[in-house]
Design a protein around this nucleic acid. Structure first.
Ligand SMILES: [Mn+2]
Ligand SMILES: [Mn+2]
Length: 231
RNA sequence: ACAU
DNA sequence: AAATGT
């Protein structure tokens, strides 16, 4: 099915009332207790918990799920219901190669929210330049944001004109607007993170920089060099 | 939808 | 499989 680029560009979850609601999914459990079709991950989880070798998969619609339930798990196991987009050689050519005169930053979180950390490396050598955390109850996006601002401050302090790569569109947007728009709830455990956010936003508003912030093209180049390699 |  | 975000 074709999707018009203009509509794609204007895509907004809010317009489809998906902003706050989780997308409805249906979960087929072929081997569980009991097998069946469930309309929430919570219910599905109960049916597979403690079942070694449980067989289950999510579907976007109930009709899809009903058909799948009457078929075999092996017909769906490992099937890319997710579109793992492969770039055409034209796209690869247009993207080109990364500029190695740069640093790369990335964040990782065990759980999201969860135990979050971030670091920056030399894109060329992968040598670690800075690393912070882990911090309790952070989000992936906050980590990517803090990493980017840390990188900006690092390069300014070094008087370096290298550019910075990030794979996070969210963090790049927040830095551009000098505003971390996280929805993360404050807790007693993540005070430090919110202090760092405030400190980062303050840095952005009180400092100038000419550093180019560039999207790391993961599909073309593989994982960003700063990646923690846990996926 | 896209990026994590 | 989940969640974080525009
Ligand atoms: Mn990342
Ligand atoms: Mn990563």
């Amino acid at each position: 099915m074709y999707i018009i680029p203009k509509l794609l560009k204007n895509y907004s979850p809010k317009r489809f009332n998906l902003a706050k609601k989780k997308k409805q999914k249906y979960y087929v459990v072929w081997f569980g207790n009991p097998a069946g079709i469930y309309d929430s991950w919570e219910k599905c989880k109960k049916a597979i918990q403690g079942i070694s070798g449980a067989q289950y998969k999510s579907f976007e619609t109930l009709p899809e799920a009903k058909i799948a339930f009457q078929k075999e798990y092996v017909d769906y196991k490992g099937k890319n219901t997710k579109k793992k987009k492969i770039l055409t050689s034209e796209e690869l050519q247009r993207i080109g190669e990364p500029n190695l005169y740069s640093i790369a930053v990335d964040a990782a979180s065990s759980g999201n929210p969860g135990k979050m950390e971030y670091r920056g490396v030399d894109t060329q050598t992968h040598k670690e330049l800075f690393r912070q955390g882990p911090f309790m109850q952070g989000t992936n996006n906050v980590g990517e944001f803090l990493a980017l601002v840390h990188g900006l401050a690092f390069l300014k302090q070094q008087q370096s004109d290298r550019m910075i790569y990030s794979d996070s569109r969210i963090a790049m947007g927040w830095v551009r607007r000098k505003k971390c728009n996280t929805k993360l709830k404050r807790t007693s455990q993540n005070k430090k993170i919110f202090e760092l956010i405030t400190r980062a936003e303050t840095w952005l508003k009180n400092n100038t920089y000419t550093t180019k912030i560039v999207k790391w093209e993961t599909k073309a180049w593989g994982e960003i060099p700063a990646d923690f390699g846990r996926k």
